[in-house]
Every structure is written in structure tokens, then in C-alpha cells.
Simulated assay, not measured.
Amino acid sequence: MPTIFHRYNALLKKYPFRSNMITTSILFGFGDITAQSLFKHKKTVIITDEKTGETHEEIETSDYNFARTCRAMIYGMMFFAPISVLWHGKTLPKLKNPFINILQRRKMEQNEHSYKKLHFYDSVFRMSVDQLIFPALVWIPLYNTVMVLLAQHEDPFGVIYNKLENNWFNVLKANWTVWPGFQLVNLYFVPVHLRIVTANIWATGWNCFLRFVHNTAGHGKGSGHKIEELVDIEDDDQEITMIYD
């Protein structure tokens, strides 16, 4: 009797775009709700006493932002999932390591042990191409553009330019702390049709970790922990970075 997983697995193979669009939207929404609920956004505000004119700092904790979750779900469904299917599902698996010539490749394909080595070499090459091109040139600019436009900021293109100018490289460095290793495992062990779902599940934990680092006392910038300082990429008015794989 087919299980829910078997049915879902079959849907991913038969309808890769529709299935991944729905799944990605749900997982992006769940990831944002989880992050907002567990690690509430904290912002330092200056309070002025009207009578004395004295000022002091207070920490404000934001309420749950439903609109932000909707923006994350729209981005996941309409932009991230279709591009991921085209790139991770249809283009990346066709790339082969160019440093292995045709004769050597054919010879390695005939032996089970050598074939595993060949698959590993191809996976390393695919991961390298993916991480050198897509986060920097596609995911980071696309995410900032879409989320700013959906949030209906005044002068949206000015906001997008400022975000990319101030945070592009910091976000890229943060991405490289965690995604290359995961993607190598994903490309080597996970079947092609399940890779996007696997990345989305991983991204939920990544998203929560980013919020934990930014909004938990003793962590993030100034904590003395190199990785935490590196991945603390959120500004007070900036939405959390969802996923750059």
C-alpha cells in the first residue's frame, strides 16, 4: 500500500514545478513563523521623557508579522521554487566535471567503486559552480528585490540598492559558512527530485539560527564567536535572509 511519502514522491517526479511551488511556499511560511515565534525581533529605541526632556534606551519586541510570512510564501512559490526546479532539477544534474576526459569517464562508469568516485567529483564540480554563481548573482539580488517590492517601500529601488550595497558581501559570506557543505551532501546523496525539498527543510533551521544569533543576548556581533559574528547579517529594519543555496 503506497504511503503518503510514496505518493508525494510520485507527485514530485510527475509535477516538479507545481509540487515544489506548493511545498516551498509552505516550508518558507513555516520557517518564517517558527523564526518569528521563537526569536522575536528586538529593536533598541530612544525614549524621551516629555516632562524632563531626559532620554533613555528601551528594548522593543516586535509582534508577529503576518504580512512578512505572506511575502516569504509568495517569494518561495513564485520565484524560488520555479528557478530552483530549472537550475537544481534540470540544469545542474547535467553538468559534468570537465577535468575528467571522456575516455577516463567511460572507464570509471564501468566499475562500481570508480563510478562512486566519478559521482563525487561531479558533485564537487556542481556544488562549486552553484555556490560561485547562484547565491551572489541570483538569490541575494532576487530575494532583496522581490521582498522590498512586496513590502511596498517608498523609493523601492533606492532601498534595494542600499541593501545590496551594504549587505551583499556579508550575506554571501554568511551563506558560504553553511550552504556549500550541505549542498555537496545534497548533490551526492539525495535524488534529484528531492533536493529542493531537502534544501528547504535545511533552510528552516538556518533561518531560525540567523534569528537566534541576531536577537538573543550574548550572541551575534560582539559575542566573540567568529561564526556568530559572521552570520549576524540582519539590521534592525531588514527582514531576515531566508535561503541562499
Rank of each mutant, 00 (worst) to 15 (best):
N170R: 13
S128V: 09
F209L: 15
W206H: 08
L137P: 05
I4W: 12
F28P: 01
L27M: 14
I140T: 07
G76R: 03
V124H: 03
N97S: 08
K90Q: 13
R195H: 07
S128K: 05
Y8L: 15
E57M: 09
M77S: 14
S114D: 13
S114L: 15
A217E: 15
R211V: 05
D130C: 03
T61W: 11
K51W: 04
I47Y: 06
G222T: 10
L118K: 03
R195Q: 15
Y64A: 02
T145K: 02
A10W: 11
T52G: 00
I196G: 02
A136K: 05
R18A: 15
R7W: 14
L194R: 09
P135Y: 01
A67I: 06
N215T: 05
D63I: 12
Y115A: 11
E228I: 07
G224Q: 08
L187K: 02
F99V: 01
D245E: 04
I59F: 05
S37E: 13
A199S: 14
L118M: 12
R68V: 04
T24V: 12
I83S: 12
M1W: 02
D32H: 03
V45G: 09
V159G: 06
F5T: 10
V178F: 15
W206M: 06
S123G: 12
H113Y: 13
R18P: 01
R211H: 13
C208K: 09
L86F: 13
Q238P: 01
F17H: 11
Y244P: 02
K42Y: 00
